[in-house]
Structure formats: structure tokens, C-alpha cells
């Protein structure tokens, strides 16, 4: 679990002078899983400029490797013929790309203004606490900026599935379901069969 306000990775570190510079890898020198190579190559063909494929490519590599690891970036760099630094620069810019091995799945708890005024902070803290208590592993649990679901505030995105409105009381079950790989809060996910906001039922 990473507090995004702490110092970013690498800020305080010197380079390793013993290592080689990270240049564009020669394709002949890097082994890439075939499915990943195919998905990146397909993405490059969708755009007039292959660089446009870099976000799809990084997302695909993250799926395979769990995070944007140096090896993941090297593979993308070899297929796209760009430098690994170009990819690092992007991976560290976008919130959904992980530059640390902090989990191959995620729970984003929205804490922006509309959720804030509905006690999202407490919901987030409860979920974070549960995650610690239940020793949830390989899942990135973090507070997130507005997820575009203020109507269901406070809410969270569990691997892209939006659930809400949440209260602190939901934290235990939410984390347990994530841990056990069950569907989180069935019926309370946006897009679930017959999903209704509480006040819509009343209406």
C-alpha cells in the first residue's frame, strides 16, 4: 500500500555506475512472451504512429508481469523499439501503471470532493485497515482521485468494477471477498443485474 504523498521512488537515489545505460534493446537480444508480443504488435498497427500504442502496450505488459517491472519495460522496449526510459517516464506518470510490485490487482477507493463530503476518507481508512488486518496480498489498495461515479459515493473500483455506495461497515466483507477472489458485494456493482442506487428504489 503506497501513500502517494510520500517521496516517489528513486528520487533520492544515484544511478548504478556499474550497469550499462538503458538503450533501445536490439530485438535479437530480448525474449518476449509470444502473446504479449502479439498484443503489442497489434496495438502498434492500430495507430498511424506506433508510439500511440505505448499505453496499451504498458497495460498489456502490466497484466503479464503484475507491474511495470524493468523486465516488462525491456520487453515492451524491444518490441516497440523505444528506450526503456521512455517507458519509465510514462509508467510513472499514469496512476494506473504500477512502478513497484505492489499488487497485480487493485482496489481504488475514491476520496475526491463529491465522495469526501460523504465520508469517503473513513471508508478508505476502514478498507486499508481491513487489508492490513486480513493480510491481503498482491492487491494494491489505495485512495484514488475522482473515479467518475459521484452518484454512488462513497465508492470503490475493484479491478474496474465499481461498487457503492459504501460505508465503513462494508470494509470487512469487501476485503474478504477480494482476498477470496469472490465477487465483491454482489448486486452493488455498477452494471450488476438490476443495479439501483438506494434512492432510485424509493423513487
Amino acid at each position: 500500500m503506497r501513500d502517494r504523498r510520500t517521496m516517489p521512488l528513486g528520487w533520492d537515489e544515484a544511478v548504478d555506475l556499474e550497469r550499462d545505460p538503458a538503450v533501445v534493446p536490439d530485438p535479437a537480444e530480448v525474449e518476449v512472451p509470444e502473446a504479449l508480443r502479439a498484443s503489442i504488435t497489434a496495438a502498434m498497427q492500430r495507430y498511424p504512429d506506433r508510439h500511440s500504442a505505448v499505453l496499451p502496450a504498458l497495460a498489456a505488459a502490466q497484466k503479464v508481469h503484475g507491474w511495470c517491472s524493468p523486465e516488462a519495460l525491456r520487453q515492451v522496449a524491444a518490441v516497440m523499439q523505444v528506450t526503456p526510459a521512455y517507458l519509465s517516464s510514462l509508467a510513472s506518470y499514469y496512476d494506473m501503471l504500477r512502478t513497484e510490485p505492489i499488487g497485480s490487482r487493485y482496489v481504488y477507493v475514491c476520496t475526491s470532493v463529491a465522495c469526501h463530503v460523504r465520508d469517503a476518507r473513513a471508508v478508505y481508512e476502514a478498507i486499508a485497515q481491513e487489508a492490513r488486518d486480513q493480510e491481503l496480498e498482491d492487491v494494491e489498495v489505495r485512495n484514488f482521485e475522482c473515479l467518475g461515479a459521484c452518484d454512488m459515493a462513497p465508492m470503490a473500483s475493484v479491478d474496474g468494477r465499481y461498487v457503492g455506495p459504501l460505508s465503513e461497515d462494508d470494509a470487512h466483507e469487501l476485503v474478504a471477498a477480494v482476498k477470496e477472489n469472490r465477487e465483491v458485494l454482489p448486486g452493488r456493482g455498477l452494471g450488476d443485474e438490476g443495479f439501483r442506487l438506494p434512492w432510485e428504489d424509493k423513487a
Partner: peptide, 12 residues
């Protein structure tokens, strides 16, 4: 119009 925050019926 999206209405949210401290209202009774948030929505579009």
C-alpha cells in the same frame, strides 16, 4: 446535469 455530494438523490 450530474448532481452529487450532500443531496438525497444524486444522479444525472
Amino acid at each position: 446535469v450530474s448532481v452529487s455530494g450532500n443531496v438525497q438523490r444524486a444522479g444525472n
